[in-house]
């Protein structure tokens, strides 16, 4: 029926299952809390007046950091489990198909798309190769580094012989000394902050500019394609 309107058929695929979506938003919240409280641990707020026994500001900030840290770490373990039992897109975060020539070709294509050298991006059911690469390097590898250095620092307060010490205490001499662990943990925060900035921008931009949905996909799980071309 010719209507004079452009005819576009939209296909939808169920990509991100509910547990993965819940993990995404819980994890995003945990990281936000970790970055803000972490920054304030390193650069505390101006001094609180009055008796020391009247306030516990630094204590609460650190407490928030540690609560978020446990959420982040347990979430990470859960996400690993979900990669094992979830659908194929749940495995992307822990597997980078670097051995495939198509991955690198598509990565270059995606880079050219961001550099305005391609008129159109390709369609992806899962992550696009650029996003995929960043997520694996920064969330999976970076997340592990933050957990290892974070729990190593945590073991300093739980003490010799605590499980944190037994599991992560070796990180301290490996890196050098406690101050080095802190500084790498601190650098890690900035790397993740920059990732989040790019990630959120890319999610919004691609939601508008690409040929597929993104933000709603992370909310509903369904990937909508805006056209039917390959």
């Amino acid at each position: 029926m010719p209507t004079g309107l452009p005819q576009v058929q939209q296909t939808a695929i169920y990509v991100y299952q509910a547990p993965l979506r819940v993990w995404h938003w819980v994890n995003a919240l945990a990281i936000t809390v970790l970055a803000v409280t972490g920054y304030l641990i390193a650069n505390p707020l101006p001094s609180v007046p009055g008796e020391a026994s009247d306030s516990y500001l630094m204590g609460y900030i650190r407490f928030a950091h540690f609560v978020a840290a446990y959420v982040f770490a347990i979430g990470f373990v859960f996400r690993l489990y979900w990669a094992a039992v979830g659908n194929r897109y749940a495995r992307q975060l822990f597997a980078l198909p670097f051995w495939r020539a198509s991955f690198w070709r598509e990565l270059v294509h995606e880079l050219r798309w961001y550099a305005f050298l391609e008129t159109e991006p390709k369609k992806y059911v899962g992550h696009n190769p650029l996003a995929h690469l960043f997520m694996v390097v920064i969330i999976t590898v970076g997340g592990l580094v933050m957990i290892a250095t974070g729990f190593a620092l945590y073991s300093e307060q739980t003490g010799l012989g605590s499980w944190q010490d037994q599991a992560f205490g070796w990180v301290i001499p490996l890196v050098g000394q406690s101050q080095d662990v802190r500084m790498w943990h601190h650098w890690g925060m900035w790397i993740i902050v920059v990732f989040v900035m790019l990630h959120v921008y890319a999610a919004i931009r691609e939601d508008i500019m690409s040929r597929q949905s993104l933000i709603s996909t992370m909310l509903s799980g369904w990937r909508m394609f805006k056209d039917d071309r390959p």
């Binding site: 505390p44 707020l45 101006p46 001094s47 609180v48 020391a52 026994s53 009247d54 306030s55 516990y56 500001l57 630094m58 204590g59 900030i61 300093e156 307060q157 003490g159 010799l160 205490g169 070796w170 301290i172 001499p173 406690s178």
Partner: peptide, 30 residues
């Protein structure tokens, strides 16, 4: 782990510092 006698080197200065209540309260020399 690093070969130091743990009875003397098992804890940090910060863990037993008498100014620690000011740290927890958020009261710092600026």
């Amino acid at each position: 782990r690093q070969g130091r006698p743990s009875m003397f080197y098992g804890q940090r200065i910060h863990d037993k510092c008498y100014r620690r209540p000011h740290f927890d309260a958020g009261q710092f020399v600026e």
